[in-house]
Design a protein around this nucleic acid. Structure first.
Length: 374
RNA sequence: GCGGCUGUCGUCAAGCGGUUAAGACAAAGGACUGUGACUCCUUCAUACGUGGGUUCAAUUCCCAUCAGCCGCC
């Protein structure tokens, strides 16, 4: 087996899980936030910088690397770890989400997905077998099954057909995935916002005995309360001895709420994307650095932060960099936001250890959102 | 001093008889959740150098004046 999940303890206040995930490239402490590096790079960050902020695992993307530079080339380079100079664990997403976000450019059939490259318009075909070939070539520690992420809203009938196809694709992925010693294949639970469908999807996938499970099809535009409701009844369906990964979630509140509902892993482009667009997450809430009120603010982004950005630079300087369209703006803001979420999860783990995650949540929400959220 | 050209939002700049006076940049605010994203959205000239005149109507035509630029002495 490529990975092994070790449940250390459950928070007495919330039931949140504290654990360790053993992978071929090291141990990950869970719950964890995974920075996203779609194109074999976490945008604007070097691996050394990611290590300095204590990133333990990063995510990359099958769809993008298949189109460019091509999985054969990555394999020729010695695999994704070597290619991008990252020796810690990597998870690759399957391209299922791109099928969803590509919209007009794709056509889904039982066999797979025909789509046009967003880069040059060329036609391609991805099937579960092809995706496994690509992910095997890339060589990540954890690889995702090829799924369909249903849109929101979607009617019951469509979501049911979609999830059943995702299950059939999961079977095909499992059959096609041979490198089980070095790469753990995760199944993806779908089912939209329907309880019976989430139950059906979870049941079908658990029967296939994957080393880990993720919950997909959330954070696709539905209200947060609805997402929490889906998590409330979906997470408990999953095996306790396997890691649970909520895909695409990264706002501080959703991370905490997810952990409370039993999630172990998260990934999201949010911290790096909003960083590049000038927004920082801080211990006292969001900051839009371009706002005029920061023109002469010579204090750090977050007074309670120990990241490289906060230790060395002021809001006034960061605002200047952003407005001047300087590359360093993206680098420093990304450094901070990633550090912020990684550190948030560290605090969450500590709170679970001490059986006070609910207290931590309430304190955090009050500081970050200025509301009790009780 | 004499010719010529130009004066429209902080900047550049369309419009040349009846327009809600384009657009771009800047500025101000917002969004972003398995990255098609240094992207996207919103707001931003009762005002067209100034004063007269012609006209039903003038940023658009005429005169004067001021300012800038380019020539020539």
């Amino acid at each position: 087996m490529a990975i092994k999940y070790e449940l250390i303890k459950e928070c007495k206040q919330t039931g949140a899980r504290l654990g360790r995930l053993h992978t071929p490239h090291g141990i990950i402490e869970t719950p964890i936030f995974m920075p996203v590096g779609t194109q074999a790079t976490v945008k604007a960050m070097t691996p050394e910088e990611l290590k300095e902020m204590e990133a333990q695992i990063i995510l990359s993307n099958t769809y993008h690397l298949y189109l460019r530079p091509g999985h054969d080339l990555v394999k020729e380079a010695g695999g994704l770890h070597k290619f991008m100079n990252w020796d810690r664990p990597i998870l690759t997403d399957s391209g299922g989400f791109q099928v969803f976000s590509l919209g007009e450019l794709r056509k889904i059939t039982e066999e797979g997905v025909t789509f046009q490259s967003h880069i040059d318009g060329s036609k391609h075909f991805l099937s579960p077998e092809k995706v496994m070939e690509i992910e095997n070539a890339l060589g990540a520690d954890i690889i995702m099954a090829f799924d369909e992420c249903a849109p929101y809203p979607a009617d019951h009938d469509y979501v049911k057909k979609s999830l059943e196809r995702t299950t059939r694709w999961a079977v095909r992925c499992k059959d096609a995935h041979t490198n089980t010693e070095n790469q753990a294949l995760f199944g993806i639970v779908q089912g939209g916002m329907y309880k019976d469908l989430r139950e059906q999807s979870a049941k079908e996938l658990i029967a296939l005995d994957f080393p880990g499970y993720s919950i997909g099809g959330l954070s696709v535009g539905e209200p947060k309360e609805l997402m929490y409701e889906v998590l409330d009844y979906t997470a408990p369906l999953l095996p306790k001895d396997k890691p649970r990964y909520l895909m695409g979630v990264g706002s501080p509140d959703a991370l905490i709420e997810g952990v409370i509902r039993g999630i172990d892993m998260f990934d999201c482009v949010l911290p790096t994307r909003i960083a590049r667009n000038g927004t920082a997450m801080t211990s006292v809430g969001k900051i839009v650095i371009k706002n005029a009120k920061f023109t002469r603010d010579f204090s750090p982004l977050d007074p309670n932060c120990s990241c490289y950005c906060c230790k060395n630079y002021t809001k006034a300087y960061l605002r200047h960099l952003y407005k001047a369209d300087e590359i360093l703006s993206s680098r420093l803001m990304s450094t901070h936001n990633l550090h912020f979420l990684i550190d948030l999860m560290k605090q969450v783990r500590q709170a679970i250890m001490e059986d006070r995650l609910l207290d931590f949540r309430n304190e955090f929400f009050e500081r970050y959102y200025g509301i009790s959220h009780l």
